[in-house]
Design a protein around this nucleic acid. Structure first.
Length: 481
RNA sequence: GGGCCGUUAGCUCAAUUGGCAGAGCAGGGGACUCUUAAUCCCAAGGUUGCAGGUUCGAUUCCUGCACGGCCCA
């Protein structure tokens, strides 16, 4: 009797033999359960109405009392109690209703009232089976807690865990709010290739795939950056894209090999302009998604220079020690052991991520990065050796990255060549030379501000989750079919 | 890649020193017309992740593997 399936199949056959279709085609005129709550939560205990509603959902609990029964039905918007009476429904309909299995999908007509204990309830006047469930749902009180099953069979997680449903509704609301925000400001939503002859726009190893008819390899994109900037060259001026990027690197609580990225580019803007846009946009999205936590997204956010942020947390001035040896030595005087095998920019990155990042709880911009870590950012207008770049942090994680975009094609060519040199030294996360992109820049790209936002990380922040897998419906897992 | 922890009934969890593998929920039978983790009675439910090893005897100890979690790189 695996998972009680035999009992359920026997009921299925009995229903069929009684002339009941266990899988009917549709059920018209359903209202969300929340509309009943909205209309009648103010009723007094014991108060009855003759207002009729038609709802549909999954049977989540049942409490029988002989000639009557209470049943809980759940839909996407909420849960409501049903009260069924044998004297109201008749013997056949009542017996069939109380012998349903938990997990069955039903449609119900009933009138709203409040029970003596004060629970809003639908008195069932008629009902029908909408789909038979042949497997037992997870236990009703604890729900499904096994993390592996929650991720591999997310449908069960959604069925049994209300807060998981709420999380993914929040995610959906956040993404639609993002689109609304950009659409309202004259941005065009565009779609650029996922399959790319060359990858670029970020520092990461790519996934490789093969096109049979062309007999050549393609890369799954690691970013949308370079194609979007070609659209800026083409005169579209304000563009954004929301889509999946793919990075062939380790999986952690903040890295998924497949993740959702928002990028936008705006002609005639710089990194200060787009910083103001990010704080406004996130503040709007948090409001629209119903965020109610401790974080304050109200603009303006705190702005720190990278040099000062690291100095404040470690006592190390990375700009005053602008080569590997002197930086390692300086860190040592502050009691920080750095790996002397790493390059200067890698060491700076380590100081940032280890000593600064975890302390940035409220939304914060860290500004003005060394040129070595930023092959697409324009030189800083007043700080030599730095570029006009910021990253935005919140709850200790980086969720956004932006530049005043480099638009000098000769400078861009030189940056690619520097990356190629790193590749030859064995660095596997470098930027391949993209001649199509440089040629596009040679036609002239206006001054441009560009931003990337990790949508999964933004949803983690808005929902208070600490693992990226919690906010991805079907996260990548080892093994499986 | 490394360290630690976990994997027992459909689900959530027990099992003393290595000695008959238990409970709640769900499912089955029965009672009950305002309950809400409903309640009460009865019966059933197991290849203890997989493969080895030690032992008279392994859920328990050892080795390897798989999958997962947390931390580190």
């Amino acid at each position: 009797m695996s998972e009680g399936q035999d009992d359920r199949r026997a009921k299925l056959e009995r229903l069929r033999s009684e002339g009941v279709d266990p899988f009917p085609h549709q059920f018209d005129g359903v209202v969300p359960i929340e509309t009943i709550h909205a209309a009648h939560d103010g009723l007094e205990a014991g108060e009855e109405t003759d207002t009729a509603y038609r709802i549909a959902g999954r049977l989540a609990a049942r409490r029988g009392h002989g000639g009557a029964a209470f049943l809980d039905v759940v839909d996407r918007s909420g849960r409501i109690q049903l009260h069924a009476r044998k004297d109201a429904l008749g013997e056949e309909s009542f017996e069939r209703l109380v012998s349903l299995d938990l997990g069955d999908l039903i449609g119900v007509d009933g009138t709203a009232f409040k029970s003596r204990r004060g629970e809003l309830t639908l008195a069932v006047t008629s009902w029908e089976l909408l789909a038979k469930s042949l497997r037992a749902p997870p236990e009703k009180f604890h729900g499904l807690e096994d993390v592996e099953i929650r991720y591999r069979q997310r449908e069960l997680d959604l069925i049994s865990n209300e807060e998981v449903r709420q999380l993914f509704i929040l995610r959906s609301k956040a993404i639609s709010a993002i689109r609304r925000w950009f659409d309202d400001r004259g941005f065009l939503e565009v779609e650029t290739p996922v399959l790319q002859p060359l990858y670029g726009g970020a520092l990461s190893r790519p996934f490789v795939t093969h096109h049979n008819a062309l007999d050549r390899d393609f890369y799954l994109r690691i970013a949308t950056e370079l194609y979007l900037k070609r659209l800026i060259v083409g005169g579209l001026e304000k563009v954004y894209e929301i889509g999946k990027d793919f990075r062939n690197e380790g999986i952690s609580h903040k890295h998924s090999p497949e993740f959702t990225m928002l990028e936008w580019y705006e002609a005639y803007a710089d990194y200060n302009d787009v910083a103001r846009e990010l704080e406004e946009m996130v503040s709007y999205v948090a409001r629209e998604a119903g965020y109610e936590g401790e974080l304050d997204f109200t603009p303006p956010w705190r702005r720190l220079k990278l040099r000062e942020a690291i100095l404040e947390k470690t006592g190390v001035d990375v700009i005053a020690h602008r080569d590997r040896e002197s930086l390692v030595a300086e860190a040592k005087t502050k009691g920080i052991e750095l790996d002397p095998a790493e390059s200067w920019p890698q060491l700076v990155d380590e100081l940032l991520s280890k000593y600064v990042e975890p302390t940035l709880v409220q939304p914060t911009f860290v500004m003005d990065y060394p040129v070595e870590l930023s092959p697409f950012a324009k030189a800083h207008r007043s700080e030599p050796g730095l570029v006009e770049r910021w990253e935005a942090f919140c709850t200790g994680i980086e969720f956004s990255n932006a530049f005043t975009e480099l638009n000098d094609p000769d400078e861009q060519r030189a940056r690619f060549e520097a990356q190629t040199a790193l590749t030859q030294e064995g660095d596997e996360e470098t930027q391949p030379y993209d001649e199509d992109f440089v040629r596009a820049l040679e036609h002239g790209m206006p001054p441009t501000g560009g931003v990337g936002v990790g949508i999964d990380r933004l949803v983690m922040i808005l929902s208070g989750r600490s693992s990226i897998r919690e906010v991805i419906l079907f996260p990548a897992m080892r093994g499986g079919s």
